[in-house]
Nucleic acid binder design. Sequence first.
DNA 1: GCCGTTTTCGGCCCGACTGTTTTCAGTCG
Length: 612
Amino acid sequence: MDNITLARLLDETAALLEIDAADPFRIRSYRRAAETVEQQTTPLETLIGPDGDVKQLLAIPGIGKGMAANIRDLAATGTMPLREELLTKYRASMLELLRLPGMGPKTVALLYSALQIENIDQLEEAAKRGDLLPLPRMGQKFTDKLLKGIEDYRRNASRFRIDDARQHAERVSELIRQFPGIETITPAGSLRRGKESVGDLDLLVTGPACEPDVVAAAVEHVATLPLIDKLLARGQNKVSFNLRNGLQVDVRLLPRASYGAALQYFTGSKHHNVTLRQRAIKRGYTLSEYALMRLEDNKIIAAASEEEIYNALELDYIAPELRENCGEIEAAARHELPKLITRSDIRGDLHMHTTESDGSNSIREMAEAAIERGLEYIAITDHSKLLTMTGGMDDKRAIAHAARIRAESNRLAEEFAAKRGPQWARYERRLKAGEPNTHEPTVPFRILAGCECDILLDGAMDLENDTLAQLDVIVASVHSGFNQTPEEVTERVLRACENPFVQILGHPTGRKVLKREPYKVDVPKMLAAAAKYGIAVEHNSNPARSDLSDLQLRQAKELGCKIIVNTDAHAIEELDQIDNGIVQLRRAWLSAADLINTQPIDAFLAALRPRP
DNA sequence: GCCGTTTTCGGCCCGACTGTTTTCAGTCG
């Protein structure tokens, strides 16, 4: 049983305990265990087998003797005594009821005991008949809201991709900012933490118009924004609404003095905050969205900035991407947080397309755009012939294209030597603008001649080895079209790793972030093979295509993989998507040293798998 | 059920909003 399934069963048990009105702290321990189990990079079932190391299991925070026994039972039998016991009292289908808005464990339990409601269909019927009305706190308004919630749930239990959510956040922010006296609008929540999908949008707004005595007017402005589809709630300083696409937006208007506390609070994650507040209490403080206060006299210790709050709790500042209660608080206390990777650490992008296949720009345009963004080298990797719909190259074209790429690279080198061309132009522009950290360029920009080759059924590439030998860098990718099962795709990639020309494994997961059922290729197996053969693994920054999750990135690092972050850009502006990729790398606690395209080109080329 | 440089027992996070209420329980983030 894999960790994800283990975590799901523990979490379900927690939900059943909630419906059963069990000890809330016992429930919390099941929830906590579920979360930590999900975050583990090694399969826990290997720790409990005959030659497993139970000590390692008990070393995981939140897992004690009882939980270890539960995990052992789950792995061995697929269930555990407590879960079975609860399932004789309640139905598994009731867990789905908890996902409806406004439905919590108490309500689910009440509906079951009063009306024997076990699932969403029965709930809908009962609500339509008006059976809910006699129950406490369930009037017409509650019933209407519930029916709407059921409808929404059936339509799409929707989450939004981070790049889409960011765009919506900007649109809404622009309109809010039109109100005079609003200075700062920051997206908080999972968007700020960089999760690859977000359920709703949290916008924190501050400025003179948000001070308590005048905030009502600004709230009115927000509550009447033209893009609101449905107003959900409206409080003294909070407005919630839906956009037409179903995305829920929560806007909070906050006084400047407590903005840091609010930002900290609403960025979450929930579990990070819980642990942080426990730490506050141990030190005689209490932490809320308004301030860190001393308990004995309510004196405000810190409130205006997040840094103050973390420092007052004797912690280094914790980047939002790390705030998942996965050991970051302990690491911050020991001053052992990693120096996370930033965009300026990236020196090369080894996966992009031009008009030669399905890209929109020329070799020169891609190179100039990369130079503009501070890169030192790129690889042009157009598609090979298997992907006919992209205009993929056959052997002859691939070789001719490589010659053009090298010619362009040489031209840039000549321009560089003559102190003209895009590298010097950028330098002079930055110098003139007084940009900090502006240095004279020292090495000519390099364009490597590459190809994004397809892996055939037998693991060979769809171009001849003679052709591959004439290119600088080979990205090997699996594209669909063979109608294979995930297991077969995994096998195909493993065979491809044995091909000595393969240097970079392109978008290895085939995963689409919002697909409900993840594509079940065996990623750890692929990563292990890549590590064994010295093949670099690409983290693809384009969230619309596929990439490695933060958990898989941690696995890649632990397995000793060479990791590369690429954009897979099909147009110059897509080079900026590197930011999406970097956020996931940061969430995986990776530093510049964990990647190879953070190195200067010579070191990078030396780190690639040697050519036969 | 977990956890411990104050503890192996007694703790375990905070506040706002909603609906149906005359003081609050439940849900949510």
